[in-house]
Amino acid sequence: MLILSVESTCDETAVAITENGRRALTDQIFSQTGLHAVYGGVVPEIASRSHVELVSRLSERALEAAGVTKAQLDAVAVSYAPGLIGAVLVGVSFAKAAAYALGIPLIPVHHIPGHIAANYIAFPELEPPFLCLAVSGGNTLLVDVRGYTDMAVMGATRDDAAGECFDKTARVLGLPYPGGKYVDALSQTGDDTKYALPRAHVEGNPYDMSFSGLKTAVVNLVHHAEQKGEALDRESLCASFSRAVSETLVPRTMRLAKALDYEKIAVAGGVAANSRIRNDFKKAAEAAGARLFIPPLSLCGDNAAMIGCQAYYEYLAGTRAGSDLDAYANMEL
């Protein structure tokens, strides 16, 4: 079954063609990073404008790259929530119209299960049930993946997403946007014990998280140093920060996996590209005898192949949408 999928929830415009939920024939991604860099973050209106300029060209290119004709497509899928509403609307409007005109089913896909499904492309042997930490600039969720379309959120950040915290840290250190990879690069040579940064524990659910305290601590630390004219050890600050994030994410994930009696643990989303978090997960999984699945860097960020793969399983479960499908800025899993 061939699915054409569209992703436009944030600052990547992407169109992919995937087969049976496991194989990406092509994933045409245009990253708008360069358009937003001067603003230090994603500007929703600029993102929406770029999506509408490119969505048909990327669709055409996807067909060419995959060597597929429109007549061979079996369904159209689209990431319809959550995201920047103006941006999501572009993908949804285009995908709806294309599915209707082609006379094939339209499959709506929630962005987070899409990220989780990136693992199905990278690891053909991975099947639910497993535990997944979905961690990006917009989300930080611990998801019990009971089945391909049967999921439950077991823990979540109460405030900022982990990725947002990386971006803020980069920004306050004067690093380019998006800052995750620059923080990661600097942290390689730093001393991760040099700066004492908080790891928040929230009341109630032991699997919930909080990153706003950590974010504020980094901002204050940098501002105080600037006021006093002290030179910061940027490498060590990045290393200490990355460690604090990792120590918030990794032990919680491992504890929950144990509580659920899962031996398979997956990580998904843009923050899964962070080397400290990847390494800490590898060590923790090895120590616990768990099997760890982290997609390659190319599948961590937003892409359309992951949407197409999740769409296949949604299709099998009977999920369909009509011409009245709307886009949503927020939607619970």
Binding site: S59, K70, V90, S93, A95, A97, A98, Y100, L102
Partner: peptide, 9 residues
């Protein structure tokens, strides 16, 4: 975007 979807298809 709607017209693009229809016309492209």
């Amino acid at each position: 975007a709607t017209v693009k979807g229809l016309a492209w298809a």
